[in-house]
Design a protein around this nucleic acid. Structure first.
Lengths: 213, 213
DNA sequence: ATTTAATTTAACCAAACGGTTAAAATATAT
DNA sequence: ATATATTTTAACCGTTTGGTTAAATTAAAT
């Protein structure tokens, strides 16, 4: 009744449900019982698959981290000219975060408390040897060498872009309380405008004065 | 021995310690026993002052929220010209966050999970009647009317500036893992450069083309 | 048909934790 | 000196929670 048999195996169902619960409530707030209930199974079976809460959590955290990293890397793999690349990145990145708006905060929560195994995972996923050679860094360095943008530490640009893209979703509750009139708010439209605003500010903040490309 | 008598009253010591612990570990992660221990008192006395964990937490959360709001409002109260005002705001805001780098994430954590009483507090502190009349909104609208910056939804600008200022501190662990070579990193210098980068990108992203003021 | 794996049921355990209580001790104020 | 407020000690309680266990049941594989 609750289980549509054969439509997915139990392990996937557990992982899917556990991800929801962990993202909603964090490691400490999540309850094994709730995960079991929402997955339509019982607690015994849950422990039968993933021995402990920590093992289950670690599984899911790594999955989310890898997925997020993969999403970003994918966005950078294109041969568009700088302007289009930046516009594309901002638009698609905001789309991704929009569809998974709890993920960034979830990741940062865990990073702030401990972050032991995290660094391993991150280094593993990104396969970092030389920070100079990161795709994102190269993209901005190239644009600088070609004179398309002003000279500036590329890391500062990256932090600015990601921060500008993420912050609305991380801080949405407080932003809406303070900044937005709820009686007259079209969220989808606002997010669409957000893409344009981030691009306009960053792009025209980087392009040298006196040349419009 | 542990208590330096008379150098501070117990209630303040509790609040101070509890703030540390809550900010470090969140509501669920914090332990009343640990707060008592680190405050140099016992659990009974802790409950004698603040009956429940929730009461103590609520106290501290509101305090932090008010302080943070107050900090921002204070930064906006000056009659500097737009360029200086923006530069000043970014610099001082980053300084504040730098000294309390766990606070923003702490606030956002709680806002994401529940945010019941929060809206009350926020509305109370900011005394919001008309979002159009917020100081920050007015500042950008004035600059637009004076032709100093391009026309754009001021809310988008604000979100971009705050996001750019905050994100390094919120995401520092992951940023340092991915983006920064730890063998050759001067954090204070990087944060100093961060101020300039945020200002340059935002300011020149807003100033109309063809006029250098 | 028989073995093996997946799943349920339901009871149970130990530890952690928030909170209480009562009694004594210490300090502060009057 | 006496009353009042603060602080300690230490034991205790009820609940929640992660995790276990054992036995039975059902489904899948050989």
């Amino acid at each position: 009744m609750v289980n549509n048999p054969k439509d997915s195996n139990t392990e996937e169902k557990i992982l899917h449900t556990a991800m929801e619960v962990f993202v909603e409530k964090g490691l400490l707030g999540a309850r094994m019982q709730e995960i079991a209930d929402r997955a339509g199974i019982n607690k015994a079976l849950l422990h039968y698959y993933f021995r402990t809460k920590e093992r289950l959590y670690s599984h899911i955290f790594q999955f989310i981290l890898k997925k997020s990293a993969g999403d970003i890397i994918e966005l950078l793999n294109s041969n568009l000219p700088f302007e289009d690349l930046l516009k594309n990145f901002i638009s698609k990145y905001i789309d991704i975060v929009h569809k998974n708006h709890r993920i960034p905060l979830f990741i940062m929560k865990e990073l702030s408390s401990g972050g032991n195994t995290v660094k391993e995972v991150v280094k593993n996923v990104f396969n970092i040897k030389n920070t100079e050679e990161l795709p994102a860094i190269r993209i901005f360095k190239n644009a600088m060498e070609e004179g398309r943008i002003v000279t500036m530490d590329p890391r500062q640009i990256i932090i600015t872009v990601i921060g500008a893209c993420l912050f609305y979703f991380i801080g949405e509750p407080i932003i809406r309380t303070i900044l937005i009139d709820e009686n007259n708010f079209d969220r989808d439209q606002f997010i669409k405008e957000r893409k344009k605003a981030v691009f306009d500010i960053v792009y025209y903040g980087l392009v040298p004065r006196g040349e419009n490309k």
